[in-house]
Nucleic acid binder design. Structure first.
Length: 609
DNA sequence: CGTATAACTTAGCATTCCTGAA
DNA sequence: TTCAGGAATGCTAAGTTATACG
């Protein structure tokens, strides 16, 4: 089934996808789909020459395959796609040292271009970035170059930078035909490298390209920003595939580091990255069966947790009064996670990454206790940097017992001491409920904000509001786009212009009316009608613009995608769409529909989380 | 059983694509 | 038809969780 159709309105496309996922290689058609909480059953019609058989295929996603830790039976692929080799600069473009042009060795030049390309980014103005870059760059130089190039301040990448700006302008100005040729080549590469064969089925790969070399750009105040991310060679790469499959060919003149056949993992290739020493993987796209099943499992666990959540809450409230300090800390930490959807907060190595924290790694300096604040009692003020160095700032009234405990935890401690010094994340994992407390909370909230008897637009607005509420709770932020202020101004101008037009139109209408009153000709009557229409249209346009303005303002720093993609059970959304007659394309775009194909397939309108 | 690290999910920013208003 | 600006997609960093290991 190579049904890559663009016809999104065709409901059958999901069905087709669905049975493609079902690991059958016959030509079949789906007669019906049934689903319970753990088992999805599909009634199929096998169409073979001269016979027709009906059969029920049960896919037990939960148990079954994962029992023995095997992730696949067969796996075949072409290996990753490498970035193009470095192309040296033209003769007339040069690096300058101490005011004089200097021709660099190929290797040193390549690293220099990484910096030159980033020159107009504010990263390059940071001292740590410059220092890390310069240190790593000098490592790549020849001995002579290293002798000569000793001071960063004497380096001038300006000409190189201008060259790259020029190049990208040229690229932009290419003709349609030229762009089309490039596009086609890209598609060919995608076809060749972008898919693999897993258990006999073609599946899309998520990231089939090896990450190109460049300068590391961490988030926030990362101590390693600017370090050289080295070029990855086939000799660095471990290939994973089944042993009877065709082993991918390394590029000419090269060898793989290793070819292994590990069916307990899902990755196709991996390598060690030099900046942090972590492993990078080539894995499947979220639309693949493998990832879909895992996602489904996640939500099933969350669903089971729903039945337990009251017990869990009672348990942690009891822990607040425990004699054991450890238990008290655990109780308060879980309370935070439940109430505020904080991340678990693993320990991390100091100096290796940006200084960010989650719940268990909160330090005394990150919270302030207020006996009373803005008319509320027992308020905890949080201020810390979380994942991706996104600031979490919140003032939360908490239970009195929690407040007392926090005071206790903070006694005789320095600001840089751990707030919860007796616990760590692994203690929660034993009970394995943290993450799902959050999800439950979010999902319930989400569901409760939706309702019937609305127009399509209102329904969608309500959906987005719910989505936004979840995103706010989870603190999913984005930095306002650089063009935000400008585009806001533009919009404001548009609104003003529209207002002016409206005022004028109104005046014209008034005049037309009075003209008509004086001499009741057909022509003037039509003019009045025309002006009335005009006013109405302008009013509508104005209202739309104003709505757009509020919506955009509200979304200024809120990122909706993350919660939609990772936290909200898609079956709730799908069921809601079916129940209230909202086309699924209105809430999920193509990528999202692909990722959630399993939910779209197996959910009917009476699904309850 | 605790810890290290491999594996895998979640996340925001950058780039590209597409659409709808002028 | 053009082009600004928003949506979609791509990329890879930064988390969490599972697993291996002593």
């Amino acid at each position: 089934n190579n049904n890559n159709n663009n016809n999104n309105n065709n409901k059958n496309s999901y069905r087709n996808n669905g049975f493609h996922r079902c690991a059958l290689s016959y030509t079949v058609s789906v007669l019906s789909i049934a689903c319970g909480s753990t088992t999805a059953g599909i009634l199929l019609r096998y169409t073979q020459p001269g016979q027709q058989v009906h059969k029920i295929c049960f896919g037990r996603w939960e148990e079954g395959r994962s029992q023995d830790g095997k992730k696949w039976k067969t796996l075949e692929h072409k290996g990753p796609l490498f970035p193009p080799e470095y192309e040296p600069l033209p003769q007339d473009v040069s690096f300058y040292y101490n005011g004089k042009p200097l021709r660099l060795s190929i290797v040193a030049e390549e690293v220099a271009t990484f910096y030159a390309k980033m020159l107009d980014h504010e990263y390059t103005s940071k001292e740590i970035f410059q220092k890390n870059f310069f240190t790593d760059w000098r490592e790549e130089m020849t001995a002579e170059e290293r002798d000569l190039i000793c001071e960063f301040s004497k380096c001038d990448f300006g000409e190189m930078h201008r060259y790259f700006v020029e190049q990208s302008e040229k690229k932009k100005d290419m003709s349609k035909e030229e762009k089309e040729v490039i596009r086609e080549q890209d598609i060919l590469l995608l076809c060749e490298y972008g898919y693999c064969l897993l258990d006999g089925h073609k599946e899309k790969i998520g990231n089939f390209r090896v990450e190109p070399p460049g300068l590391f750009r961490g988030r926030g105040e990362h101590p390693k920003m600017g370090k050289l991310k080295k070029r990855i060679l086939p000799e660095d790469i471990i290939i994973n595939c089944s042993n009877d499959s065709k082993t991918p060919e390394p590029p000419k003149g090269h060898k793989w580091k290793e070819v292994r056949h590990d069916d307990t993992v899902t990755w196709l290739a991996s390598w060690v990255e030099n900046v942090q020493g972590s492993i990078k993987y080539i894995m499947l796209n979220p639309s693949s069966k493998l990832k879909g099943e895992k996602d489904w499992q996640k939500y099933e666990i969350a669903r089971k947790l729903k039945l337990k959540v009251e017990t869990i809450r009672k348990e942690y409230e009891r822990d607040w009064k425990s004699k054991e300090m450890k238990k008290r800390q655990k109780g308060v930490a879980v309370y935070f996670i439940d109430k505020l959807a904080l991340r678990a907060g693993n320990e991390k190595e100091e100096g290796e990454t940006a200084d960010t924290v989650g719940c268990c790694s909160l330090r005394v300096e990150h919270i302030t206790l207020h006996k009373e604040l803005d008319g509320q009692e027992c308020v905890v003020e949080f201020d810390f940097l979380g994942k991706d160095s996104i600031r979490y700032y919140n003032k939360v009234p908490v239970d009195k017992r929690v407040f007392k405990n926090l005071k206790l935890f903070m006694e005789n401690k320095n600001p840089e001491d751990d707030l919860f010094d007796r616990i760590n994340v692994s203690m929660f994992l034993l009970n394995n409920y943290l993450l799902f407390c959050n999800q439950l909370l979010l999902l319930n909230m989400f569901a409760s904000l939706l309702s019937a008897n609305m127009t399509l637009e209102e329904k969608l607005l309500s959906y987005n509001r719910a989505n936004r509420a979840v995103a706010i709770l989870c603190n999913h932020q984005r930095t306002a786009p650089k063009t935000f202020e400008k585009s806001m101004q533009n919009l404001q101008q548009k609104i003003e212009l529209k207002q002016k037009q409206l005022d004028e139109a109104k005046a014209e209408l008034k005049k037309a009316k009075s003209d008509y009153r004086e001499s009741k000709t057909e022509k003037l009557k039509r003019l009045v009608e025309q002006k009335e229409k005009m006013v109405k249209r302008l009013q509508e346009q104005l209202k739309k613009l104003q709505l757009q303005m509020t919506d955009r303002e509200e979304n200024k720093v809120i990122a909706l995608g993350t919660s939609k993609l990772n936290y909200l059970d898609p079956r709730i959304s799908v069921a809601w769409c079916k129940k209230f007659d909202v086309p699924i394309e209105k809430i999920y775009n193509k990528t999202q529909r692909d990722k959630f194909a399993w939910a779209i397939d197996m959910t009917n309108e009476d699904f309850e989380f």
